[in-house]
Design a protein around this nucleic acid. Structure first.
Lengths: 178, 178
DNA sequence: GGACGCATGTAAGAAGTTACATGATTTC
DNA sequence: GAAATCATGTAACTTCTTACATGCGTCC
């Protein structure tokens, strides 16, 4: 039985302990969304499918406050996650509307400059968002799992590289245009 | 009337002259696919929609060899393309299954190393593909449009950065594990 | 004559987003 | 008492990929 990528996101988010769908979504939004997003419309149906397949187990919880369902990895689920981790990675996609516009800017340096500025601004906003995440990840790092932090640093450093590239490209276009 | 991103890819590919759907697909595969892909299943229906909307015009051509339909930008289509170019860019997405796996590698440095090696290999393959494109783009550059080449260099340099990051991360994980 | 490239398309399905709907609890 | 947050879900829709179907022209 083939699982979707979202299924692995859900399984992975349960690796350190039980969580509800709502919590999974919150953690995704603070971490993996920068390279793999997931919406409620994916998470909740996926939780049901995974429970039906015996890879996770749901338990109603009404104790402290609101009623909710927390899910735990089963042994089968943990094995499925480990199996996926051990297979070579495949999906590597990048979609950049700014780059597409730049490609089509034809012989118009002014348009290209505006596109590069907009692209740089987008990367800077992403960078700011990643930096607010940084603090939250430090706790996990302290808990003996260094990889979320490593991945976050990839996000920050690659985005910094892209901001710097935009600056270089702007200078180059300005020089060429004058 | 809102156009899809694929519609702008098609319009953009007609900016320097008429082309058939098949040619558009071939050019996309040699250029924008690294940051914006398009399949036949998108291109052909999109050509019809754009022709219906009066943004492009199709003309049957049977002259030289096979029969085919080449499309030309209308004035309205060129205006629509310019309008899109002048609006700020929005979509900026990155999906990286390797990074997702690394995030979930928990406290297993061996798994993390294998994931990093696989990720590096993927980037190296992409780099090789981008470098074969490089030569083809030089002609366009010579023709007075420097931007496809600029975008290609972004692809090559950013991918090189990612390969280098994988090497650095592997060294770091190895050091930490020993 | 067969393989390959040119050329156009459709159908089915997967994946993902957005908006909507509902309601409880907690905090100010 | 209002607003924010917790919590779960569905429906409609868009987007995109993959596979299939067809047929002609050219090159070896």
């Amino acid at each position: 039985m083939e699982l979707s990528h979202t299924a692995y996101v859900v399984l992975g988010m349960l690796r350190h302990g039980p969580r509800s769908g709502y919590e999974i979504k919150a953690v995704v939004d603070k971490s993996t969304r920068f390279f793999w997003a997931a919406s409620y419309g994916q998470i909740y149906p996926e939780l049901k499918r995974l429970a039906d397949a015996g890879l996770i187990e749901g338990r109603g919880e009404a104790s402290g406050g609101r009623k909710r369902t927390v899910y735990t990895l089963t042994d089968a689920g943990r094995a499925k996650l480990a199996d996926w981790l051990s297979r070579g990675a495949e999906v590597l996609e990048y979609r950049d509307e700014g780059l597409l516009k730049l490609f089509f800017a034809a012989a118009d340096p002014d348009a290209a400059l505006a596109i590069l500025e907009a692209k740089q601004r987008l990367h800077e906003e992403k960078l700011a968002a990643l930096r607010t995440v940084e603090a939250a990840t430090l706790e996990i790092k302290a808990a003996g799992d260094p990889f979320p932090d490593l991945v976050l640093r990839y996000g920050i450093e690659s985005t910094e590289w892209m901001v710097a590239w935009c600056k270089r490209a702007r200078a180059e276009v300005e020089k060429g245009a004058s």
